[in-house]
Amino acid sequence: MSMTEIVYRVGDATGPDGSGSVIIAHVCNDLGRWGKGFVVAVSARWPQPERAYREWYKQRESSDFGLGAVQFVRVAPDVHVANMIGQHGIRSSAAGPPIRYAAVDQALEKLGDFAAAENASVHMPRIGCGLAGGSWARVEPLIHARLCSRGIGVLVYDLE
């Protein structure tokens, strides 16, 4: 298994470059809130990820919903959206921004397992670094460890 590097692109992660099976990954909060940031672009393109996330949140007492969990939603024959719970709440507090790096790391590990099984590439914005308030300098090494080190292709998109 060869190590891959993150490929950076300018563009929209909901319109991924490449062929074959793709997973569009993003970070969600643990409050059942959907409506700001990257999810707006996701919902504009596909209704299923938001519906699935809200239903998953409703079932949280009897499901794996919570920090570090991932929900894979098929939106096209060869496209999945990965709803990764890596954000506690939606506002910064005295404890810092809502990002939870350990949860992002756990979610990326599950994403890696799924991507390997699907032989898929992973496409994402700079996860955890928008509304979640995270630092790319802390997120990028997690992506390297959980995805790139396994030979999984990763494309990170920055909007123009």
Rank of each mutant, 00 (worst) to 15 (best):
G68P: 06
P47W: 01
P77C: 00
W46K: 00
I99E: 09
V70D: 05
V40Q: 07
W34T: 03
V42Y: 04
V42E: 03
V79P: 03
S63M: 06
Q71R: 11
V81I: 10
R91P: 02
G89W: 08
G89P: 10
G96E: 01
W34M: 04
D78Y: 00
A103W: 01
Y57T: 02
G66R: 05
I90C: 10
N83V: 11
N83R: 01
L67C: 06
S92H: 14
R60H: 09
R45W: 02
A103S: 08
H80C: 11
Q59E: 13
Q87M: 15
P77K: 00
V40P: 02
R91D: 11
D30P: 12
A76Y: 06
V79A: 06
I99P: 11
K36N: 13
D64Y: 09
P47T: 04
A82G: 04
A103H: 03
A76D: 14
A94I: 12
A95I: 02
D64N: 13
S43V: 07
D30G: 10
F38A: 14
V70L: 08
W46I: 03
I90D: 07
S63L: 07
Q71C: 07
W46S: 04
R33W: 15
S63V: 10
S43M: 07
G89C: 12
G86N: 06
V42F: 05
Q48T: 11
R45H: 09
R74G: 12
P77I: 00
H88P: 11
V40T: 10
V40K: 03
R54G: 06
G86W: 03
W46M: 01
D64M: 06
C28L: 08
R91M: 08
A52N: 11
D64T: 12
R33P: 10
R100S: 08
S63F: 07
I90G: 06
A52K: 08
P97N: 09
W56F: 13
D78V: 01
G66P: 10
D78Q: 04
Y53N: 11
Q59L: 13
P77M: 00
Q71N: 11
L31G: 11
V75E: 05
V73F: 00
I90M: 09
W46L: 01
W56L: 06
A103P: 02
V81H: 00
